[in-house]
């Protein structure tokens, strides 16, 4: 027996999901971070974040079409993590590293938190 593994399939699907997001097609939730708004797909958010997984598996909350995050969350840090969810690329700017890490802790994105820790350690003189 044989099977054909399309090696680009996962990244091709993610690319298309990101295009859908940028065109606001089938996005089903608005995330409010302070006064900034981010449109996204619930399925992508819950596949990447423990916090969103908990929210959208809760039968009372899963149908919400807007979610307000803790006002302490930095919108720039959230924007970088949302971009990561849809692209696999984490932009680690030194000026924003603490905001990104604290937002990743809040969103329960453990592997990203570990990566931020390693980045901070490696840039510590």
């Amino acid at each position: 027996d044989s099977c054909i593994q399309f090696t680009r399939h996962a990244s091709d699907v993610l690319l298309n999901l990101n295009r859908l997001r940028s065109r606001d097609i089938l996005t089903d939730v608005t995330i409010l971070v302070n006064r900034q708004q981010f449109r996204a797909h619930k399925t992508v958010l819950m596949a990447c974040s423990g916090l969103f997984y908990s929210i959208f598996t809760d039968s009372l909350k899963c149908s919400l079409n807007a979610i307000s995050l803790d006002p302490k969350v930095d919108p720039d840090g959230f924007a970088i993590l949302l971009e990561f969810m849809y692209t696999s690329r984490l932009s680690l700017k030194e000026s924003l590293i603490m905001a990104i890490m604290n937002t990743a802790i809040y969103l329960q994105m453990d592997h990203v938190v570990d990566t931020c820790h390693r980045f901070i350690k490696s840039s510590d003189p």
Binding site: D1, S2, C3, I4, Q5, F6, T7, R8, H9, D12, V13, L15, N16, R19, L20, S22, R23
Partner: peptide
């Protein structure tokens, strides 16, 4: 897929959704 002979296909797997129509 253990024991299955896997052939790798490196090209695109699906159509590409355009950035904008």
């Amino acid at each position: 897929y253990e024991g299955v002979n896997t052939i790798k296909e490196m090209g695109r797997s699906i159509h590409e959704i355009p950035r904008q129509d």
